[in-house]
Simulated assay, not measured.
Amino acid sequence: MTLQGKTALVTGGSSGIGLAAAKMLRENGARVAITGRSAEKLQAAKAELGNDILAIRADVSSLADLHRMKTILAEEFSTLDILFANAGVAIGTPLATVDEHTYATIMDTNVKGVFFTVQSVLTLMRDGGSIILNTSWLNQVGTPGRAILSASKAAARSFARTMSAELLDRRVRVNAVSPGSIETPIHRGRNQTEEEFRAYAERVGGQVPIGRMGRPEEIAAAVLFLASDASSYMLGAEIVVDGGRSEL
């Protein structure tokens, strides 16, 4: 699954699944750009990944940031072969108590952010390129307290189909990867100790048929497959990597 000579953009690439995906894409030959909201985390990620990584501070919910991101990509890469629209937020949304601000935060990042990220780089995407959207196992099940988060991920799943149909003439494939419960910073409380997180991971892992939480690298492997020519016959599809949680 060589990506030699190809360019890739990973949004939300400074930690978790995005960081693991950026690392795997780079190891397989791609020249990689990552985005993130925190300049400090971006620099830490670049130090981990290598100096040849292009790090761009950008909030995907901001169209101004996305325009600046595209300008930098055009200057540095000229064209783009792979987009992993990974940036997202995960916040609990109990039906009786969720407020408008939380609703807007989720939808602006997970729906608006994904849509306009794709739109922003379309003129840079080479014909025959690959776009991968990060969805979630939540788009397939009904889970209390996660209505808005689940809806936002269902929208991203729908985008994989509709965008694929719209980009057929350019042979740009749009597919989705659907992670389950993965051990990433998004699941860590702000002041949570390592011991507390391990207890949380064990509890959540007990709810997964395979018996554990997933690792970011396990999602990155699916992203690599969708980014490569090995998945050339896949269009508008979704790869679910959730330890069986949405199926069993």
Rank of each mutant, 00 (worst) to 15 (best):
D169F: 11
A22H: 05
L83H: 07
S136F: 04
R190H: 12
A199D: 13
V32K: 05
L83A: 03
G13P: 05
L63V: 10
A156D: 04
N28F: 01
R146Y: 11
K70M: 10
E76W: 13
V89Q: 02
D99P: 02
K23G: 04
M24I: 08
D59M: 08
L42Q: 03
V114Y: 02
Y233E: 09
A85E: 07
Q207P: 01
A176P: 02
R215P: 06
N86D: 11
V141P: 05
G189N: 01
V223T: 02
A47H: 06
F225T: 06
N191V: 07
A154S: 15
R212D: 03
M125E: 09
A33W: 06
R68I: 10
K23W: 02
K112Y: 10
N110Y: 08
V121N: 05
F159D: 01
R171G: 09
R31D: 00
T135L: 11
W137R: 11
M1Y: 13
K112T: 10
Q192P: 10
N134D: 12
L124C: 09
R161N: 10
E100I: 12
R126N: 15
I91Q: 12
Q119G: 09
R68M: 13
V32Y: 05
I72K: 15
G113V: 04
I72W: 09
F197S: 01
Y233T: 09
S246N: 03
G16R: 03
H101W: 09
M125Y: 08
T117D: 01
T162Q: 13
E194K: 13
D169I: 10
K70T: 15
G92A: 14
R173P: 05
V172C: 01
I182S: 01
L226A: 05
A221S: 15
Q119R: 15
G16K: 05
D127Q: 13
T162V: 14
A85R: 06
I17G: 00
N139L: 12
Q192M: 15
L149D: 09
V204F: 03
F197I: 06
L168A: 14
T102R: 10
I91F: 09
I91K: 13
T2W: 11
E195A: 15
E48G: 00
A33Y: 07
M107D: 03
I106G: 00
I17F: 09
I219C: 09
T193W: 12
S231V: 11
D229P: 10
R212S: 06
A20N: 08
Q43W: 06
D229Q: 15
G29W: 02
A90C: 14
I148D: 01
